[in-house]
Amino acid sequence: MSSAPDSAAFHAAVAARRDYLNALFRREGRGVQPEVFMAYLRDVVGPLVGLTAGADSARAEELTTALYRLTLRAHRQGLIGGDAPSAALRHALTRTLPPLLSAFPDRPRDLSLAVCNGALRLERLDTARALAWLTALESLGPSCTDLDTLFSLGLVLAWREGAAEYRPAAHARFAELPPLLRRAALGVETLPNDPARRFAAPMDDAPLGPPAVVARLGGFVGFGGPFRDPPLVVAAEGRLFAFDSHSTTEIFADAFGAALRQVAEPPHDQDAPHSASFSLADDGVLRIGDAETQLAPLAASSSSAWADGVAAVTLPHSHFVFVVGRSGAA
């Protein structure tokens, strides 16, 4: 490792923990090219440690160990320096972590892992959304009072960027954020409670439009989807589930996005199949609350279910789940 002027603390830390780091590389670094990893340490990790640890040698050691481990794993998995490197991870390590590690000196390992893992998770949805999440964290993160608040903010921002499965947790965490951060994140201080407005953005108070297909989820397993055969949907315990002969997934959808997620155990008790708030006739006439519309593609559905402002419909010859809701009319 050649010395860079701002990496003295990093070099001292590497020297102090040399045996451990070497053992770590021998154990966890199979397949990683040493020179590529060294170059990365020199060019990215060293300056990051130097920038955020300053002259604090204990902190430099802690940071070095955490980032060494993290980037070694990333190299091994091809997320750095591989055939398909992760743009989100690069952004996280070079742009997002420097201001955050400076603002939050405690628990550097948790902070760096959280930001990088979160970026990778959102990148699976869409790279642009992951980058938007990181950018928002860079600008709003340093305003958080502590790391727990930062993690809560990150969750709310991830939900905003389309990770619909975090909706219940994000709702809970949103209430814990300071008012200013709430406004900065979602434009409001209080989230609307009305399930009917689930597909309208929090700031949007325009009247709701007619029911419409707001998302299409799933797909045939041969084309990368989760279903081997056309799925069916049920409502249980106030949640929506889609299942085929092999697996059960939970449906998450709202104004920010929609997602399916595998569940370990299928629900036991189904909710009543009919609801006063929702109906779907064989000819595709669909009613949500007092709004009714005909959605011809959904005629002769194989199943439909309704829970908490979301309707899900399946068709006998389709591997998709159609999510229906009422967006803001605007």
């Binding site: 628990r107 948790d110 902070l111 892992l113 893992n117 979160g118 990778l120 727990d148 993690f151 990770a163």
Partner: peptide, 19 residues
């Protein structure tokens, strides 16, 4: 334990953050 899943976002291939 559904509902307390803030950590899911922060766990992943690089190791789990202790949140």
């Amino acid at each position: 334990r559904r509902g307390f899943d803030v950590a899911e976002l922060y766990s992943g291939p690089l190791g789990d953050a202790v949140v």
